[in-house]
Design a protein around this nucleic acid. Structure first.
Lengths: 194, 194, 194, 194
DNA sequence: TATGAATGAGACTTCATTCAT
DNA sequence: CATGAATGAAGTCTCATTCAT
């Protein structure tokens, strides 16, 4: 009977939000500017999210979860610890190439103390990395004395930092390649080994 | 005498700004709330900075510079590469313990794409790390094929990430110790070696 | 058959509007909330009324007219002045019991200077009360020197005020009874007598 | 040192609010229109009240209290019941003449179910009228069987209704006089007597 | 006919900044 | 020099209304 929800509009809002937040910061990304970039009406956003904050929180949460799921899936289908690290790096570098804003968005919010993950997520993320650490320690590729805290300071910290400096174009403006993933994997493996 | 009163006021403004920005984000840290916390009048801030943005930029810049100078000074007075890494870690962990907000502030802004360093700073920072890298490669402690991009993804990235996760109290609420500095140094040294 | 479905929809809209306006005020009664309460689509209302304001005005007008007609009919079928007053009181108290929102709605709008009666109505109402006053003065039950202004300040003002304080549950939460109608009639008769 | 608060501005806001609410209704009285009428900046209001609703509530409350205090003071300084009624009528008619908007404002909000008095006020008002009723019953001027509910439906209901119909200019556009107060007092006294 | 997705004007509110004191 | 009252631009958000389906 009535018009159905235009999913592309919603998608446009989401992408526009990410881009505006990355470019102008949370405060600088006004709802008006987001709506304009997404080519929807100013009030449109409020038909799907109760507030601008909720929208950004949702995007943060869903991206973090996508990220976490990626780790999970790669772990499920790979036996070798170093392959997991490599596949993960490859995956996030592909994502970063495809949608640099998305990568910047996650990085920015992860370091913003006013955007906290949901409790649920705060618990599940370390859990995934804990399993990964165990696997590495079992296979003898990771120092058995390494704590989870030390582990996550190496992985995914190095991987993310490498991608982040690339999108910031500090050292290079090239796209991230499989070679980059290999190099970073190598750094991680060395740091972690017994 | 009168001037010293002034100085504490200015200092209070600076500290209040850092704390408010970390707690509430840049947008949430209103000039009024900063002034209130610093116990000065709203308009006082404008006697020293032309705008709120300029104040935050200044604080970011001066902290980054303090950081850079630390690297420089440690490099000047130490010959051994691993000692430099260790001393640096010790120094930033001490700073983090003393003033966690300051550490959070730097970390937050470094990952906020709307707060860019001055061009001057953007050039000088890699320069310092380049010199450090060279020293490590000369002494044979660092892989001679490592690029500056790879190097900075390890150091100071690991060091900072470790401190950051501690301030966020993700894995532990303990203060950072010399032992932590040693552990992190070890991780870095392993990652960098040939 | 199809039409009768329509009629209940319209009826539901009307009742929902009255209840929402009374509960939330004119501004707080959003078209959406009215439609939701009436279980019709948001846009449905516009098939019968050109605007929200027009809907409320219509309801106000039709209730006022119903009120006026009640006076008229009671006057037609009763010779005695005091019986007219009593029957009127009884009638509006019954209506108030049946549908308190309706009573509150009329009372609210009659005291809201932004909802004016139609010119037509503004003229016809005093006319009805003028006839009633005449009748009372002819029968000697009402002071011959009383102006219409004084008369309406007594009747129906006292009657309405009594019902209003009851729906507001200021002094009592009981339903209005015939005994209440009698008491109020007595107060009016005493006030009006020569 | 600094500028002091301009009390006339605050006064202008208050009066402008009353006038706009009376003319356009609560919803129609936009903060902008109020500020414009008061010749202050749009944001000024928020330096003294947390919201538009709070401002209107405050004005309602303070006017109701002024009203209540008037009753109290008149009762304190008069022994005779009928003098109290008369003095009260005179006082509110003078107030109505001086500031008709104020009278309309109170009347409007008293009949708006979304603007409730504070609990404190809801209790104190009937108390004052209860004392007045007692006095009238002691002096023999008021029917000893009259309930407070009946009493208040006569006084101050008649007095207020008379003033209200005058400000609405239904029957007359004249100012309210002492003669009006006398007439209304007479109506009340007749209604109340045994 | 009835729906409800979408619009956008305009509401309320915040707050960086100014400047009289 | 320092204050904080006042401003008003700009932000977030609501909601009456429209119209494709």
């Amino acid at each position: 009977m009535a018009k159905s929800i235009d999913e592309t509009k919603l998608e446009r809002i989401k992408q526009a939000t990410i881009e505006m937040v990355v470019t102008k910061g949370y405060g600088g990304a006004s709802v008006s500017s987001i709506a304009k970039k997404a080519q929807v009406a100013d009030g449109y956003l409020y038909r799907h999210f109760p507030s601008k904050k909720a929208l950004v929180q949702f995007l943060y949460g869903s991206h973090i979860d996508q990220f976490r799921q990626m780790v999970y899936e790669i772990m499920e289908s790979n036996n070798s610890f170093d392959t997991i690290i490599f596949e993960f790096n490859k995956a996030i570098y592909e994502m970063t190439n495809e949608n640099p804003s998305k990568a910047m968005f996650i990085n920015m919010l992860m370091n913003d103390y006013t955007f906290l993950m949901s409790k649920d997520m705060r618990l599940r993320i370390p859990e995934s990395f804990d399993k990964l650490l165990e696997r590495g320690q079992k296979s003898g590729e990771v120092d058995p004395n390494l704590s989870l805290e030390e582990f996550t300071s190496v992985f995914p910290a190095i991987s993310i930092e490498y991608a982040s400096s690339r999108v910031k174009k500090i050292f290079s403006e090239e796209k991230l390649t499989e070679e980059d993933a290999r190099k970073v994997t190598n750094l991680c493996m060395k740091a972690l080994r017994p």
